[in-house]
Simulated scan of single mutants.
Amino acid sequence: MFERYALFYTPIGPLADFGAQWLGWDSGIGRAVSHPEIADIDVASITRTPRKYGLHGTLKAPFRLAEGCDVAQLQDAAKVFAAGQAAFGIGTLCLRYRSGFVALRPRNQDIALQDFAAAAVKVFDPFRATLTDAEIARRRKAKLTAQQDQQMLNWGYPFIFDDFHFHLTLSGRLGADDAAHVIDALAPRLENIVPDPFLIDAITLMGQDAQGMFHQIHRYALTG
């Protein structure tokens, strides 16, 4: 039994393999992976914060199961949702330094992706337990806007709908100079393994264990 659940996009193939090595955690097999050795970069240190999630893009942020809900129901809902959605491209992903961390982000805002993520937030919200006072207080440390605060109260997470920005996180907090150095190191390694255009072709149901690490429960292909 996992402590929390989430709906992520998780890549497959060479990008997934590299992401597991870079972050030090393969969520597909639930195992720590050795980091690559890169001169002048302490990969283990700069990836410590995102490591527990594995390489992913958040669709429905981690949540505790609501009373009366179980994992089998959540799996059924994920299967139905994926069967009703068609795979779609989101253009080119680029390495960018934004909000204090390095990530792969779409070059351009994609309406289909925004709508897809919004649908995931709404469809899976009935499975989410109400936030505790401690969880609310922790979220508010991020200095949320009024809209983000209300979204957090209503839907369990502040950065959704108009505030949603898809990304595959590759570092924790970094200064601008360090981020530039990391991007320079990552760019040639990712050049031939990031699909272009990038395809959103599945959702992955994730579970967080007692040690805080996320595991892939099942990856559901979008077949609508």
Results as ranks from 00 to 15, higher is better:
Thr49Asn: 11
Thr49Asp: 15
Arg51Thr: 00
Tyr53Ala: 00
Leu55Thr: 01
Leu55Tyr: 05
His56Ser: 07
His56Thr: 10
His56Met: 06
Gly57Cys: 08
Lys60Tyr: 05
Ala61Thr: 07
Pro62Gln: 00
Arg64Glu: 02
Arg64Trp: 00
Leu65Trp: 09
Ala66Ser: 14
Ala66Gln: 14
Gly68Val: 13
Gly68Thr: 14
Asp70Pro: 11
Asp70Ser: 09
Asp70Gly: 15
Val71Ser: 09
Val71His: 06
Ala72Ser: 09
Ala72Ile: 03
Gln73Ser: 15
Leu74Ala: 10
Leu74Ser: 04
Gln75Ser: 09
Asp76Met: 04
Ala77Lys: 14
Ala77Ile: 07
Ala78His: 08
Ala78Asp: 07
Ala78Val: 08
Ala78Thr: 09
Lys79Ser: 13
Lys79Gln: 14
Ala82Glu: 12
Ala82Asp: 14
Ala83Tyr: 01
Ala83Glu: 06
Gln85His: 13
Gln85Cys: 14
Ala86Glu: 11
Ala86Val: 05
Ala87Val: 02
Phe88Lys: 03
Gly89Val: 01
Gly89Arg: 02
Gly91Phe: 03
Gly91Tyr: 01
Thr92Arg: 12
Leu93Gly: 02
Leu93Asp: 02
Leu95His: 15
Arg96Glu: 15
Arg96Leu: 11
Arg96His: 09
Tyr97Trp: 13
Ser99Gln: 15
Gly100Thr: 07
Gly100Cys: 08
Phe101Arg: 04
Phe101Leu: 13
Ala103Tyr: 01
Ala103Ile: 02
Arg105Pro: 01
Arg105Asn: 00
Arg105Lys: 07
Arg107Leu: 13
Asn108Ile: 07
Asn108Lys: 12
Gln109Cys: 13
Ile111Gly: 04
Ile111Leu: 10
Ile111Phe: 06
Ala112His: 12
Ala112Arg: 15
Leu113Phe: 07
Gln114Cys: 10
Gln114Thr: 11
Asp115Trp: 06
Ala117Asn: 08
Ala117Phe: 01
Ala117Trp: 04
Ala119Tyr: 01
Val121Trp: 03
Lys122Pro: 00
Phe124Glu: 01
Asp125Tyr: 06
Pro126Arg: 06
Phe127Arg: 03
Phe127Asp: 07
Arg128Gln: 10
Arg128Met: 12
Ala129Met: 12
Ala129His: 14
Ala129Ile: 11
Leu131Phe: 08
Leu131Asn: 13
Asp133Tyr: 07
Glu135Ala: 15
Glu135Gly: 13
Ile136Lys: 10
Ala137Thr: 10
Arg138Thr: 13
Arg138Asp: 15
Arg139Trp: 11
Ala142Pro: 06
Lys143Arg: 11
Lys143Trp: 03
Leu144Tyr: 09
Leu144Lys: 07
Thr145Ala: 10
Thr145Asn: 08
Ala146Thr: 11
Gln147Trp: 06
Gln147Leu: 14
Gln148Asp: 00
Asp149His: 10
Asp149Cys: 08
Gln150Asp: 12
Gln150Tyr: 00
Gln151Tyr: 14
Leu153Arg: 12
Leu153Gly: 08
Asn154Tyr: 04
Asn154Val: 05
Asn154Thr: 14
Trp155Gly: 04
Gly156Val: 06
Phe161Glu: 04
Asp162Asn: 12
Asp162Lys: 07
Asp162Leu: 06
Asp163Trp: 09
Phe164Tyr: 12
Phe164Thr: 04
His165Ile: 05
His165Arg: 07
Phe166Ile: 04
